[in-house]
Design a protein around this nucleic acid. Structure first.
Ligand SMILES: [Zn+2]
Ligand SMILES: [Zn+2]
Ligand SMILES: [Zn+2]
Ligand SMILES: [Zn+2]
Lengths: 170, 170
DNA sequence: CTTGTCATGTTATTTCATATCATGTATTGC
DNA sequence: GCAATACATGATATGAAATAACATGACAAG
């Protein structure tokens, strides 16, 4: 709602997926922040849910539901698909995690808190995923939608290509 | 390459999915045009492939691979998954059909011929799908990608919501 | 304590997609 | 024409993603 039509809106929040950073701190603060928000809003960040979020934060890339499930099993949680899918549903529903449709996989949100419609850059070689703000829903596509009388509720914006690292190596 | 940065690029080609039109003619001309392009480019629009394209043009909405397969069986073609997937691969590869990632389903291209990165509006109620030009890859997301050093090769842009018809009824 | 709500466990099934190998059918070069 | 080749299809099996349905458990409100 803030800077939707501004063409440089996206520059305000650089993607973090491809950048060096203190990852342990990054994970830790994201978890703490998630706990805080859940407390505030009366959401229940149960052990499974917390574990799944932690895994996704730790990985910093997209994981399939069954990869998550494997890790859950290793940690002593349930090992049937619904266990993973239910935790993921909760996390997606509440904006802690996004689903990458192109990969049928899930990634932790990089801009938690604020409600946003994310856009992703997906490296086809190393599976790294970076999240940016899309804004395209309100902008370009939004114009087409209004013209057609279509009411947008949610958008999927995913770019596939090569990340900086993989581009260099090639 | 023509109008990538122009914010109204999308307005040039209105979506056809939600509009009344002479559907039989629409299907027929699209098929003829596809045949023409295949001849030109030495592509082989075999019976299965042609049939699948015809089905998708006829439906004018997204169909899953197995729905397509059912219809193929009814028409006397093979009935195993690879039959449908191979035909779809060919059609997608050559731009006659697009995959809707959100639905794991396929839809005939509405702007065939020109190479383009499509954007879709998907009605969550009636499954209607309209195709518009995205341009967002080169525009908004493109800026973020360049900033991050990410090289975009392909984009998925899909908006989910309510089509005009379904909005009216609600 | 009991009732209602939400979360989890568990089994089974459905839906989507691909690997692999065998067979057929067009072109192309000879 | 005929063999060689490439491409397309048929057919079997399997893998991967997602959900349906029902049972059990935790916990808080009344
Ligand atoms: Zn996000
Ligand atoms: Zn990469
Ligand atoms: Zn198209
Ligand atoms: Zn509709």
């Amino acid at each position: 709602m803030t800077s939707e039509t501004h063409p440089n809106a996206v520059a305000e929040t650089a993607p973090v997926g491809f950048q060096e950073h203190d990852h342990q701190t990054c994970v830790k603060t994201a978890l703490v922040s998630a706990e805080g928000r859940c407390k505030e809003e009366g959401l229940r960040l149960t052990p499974v849910r917390r574990k799944v979020l932690e895994m996704l934060l730790q990985e910093h890339r997209a994981l399939g539901a069954y990869a998550i499930l494997d890790r859950l099993r290793d940690e002593g949680f349930g090992s049937q698909p619904p266990v993973a899918y239910r935790a993921l549903d909760f996390l997606v529903q509440n904006g802690f995690v996004h689903k990458i449709e192109r990969l049928n996989a899930f990634v932790a949100c990089s801009h938690p808190g604020a409600s946003h419609s994310p856009a992703f850059m997906i490296c086809r070689k190393c599976d790294a995923v970076a999240e940016a703000q899309s804004a395209s829903a309100k902008g370009v596509l939004g114009a087409a939608a209004r013209a057609a009388g279509f009411e947008i509720e949610r958008t999927v914006v995913e770019a596939e290509g090569l990340c900086p690292d993989c581009t260099e190596k090639a």
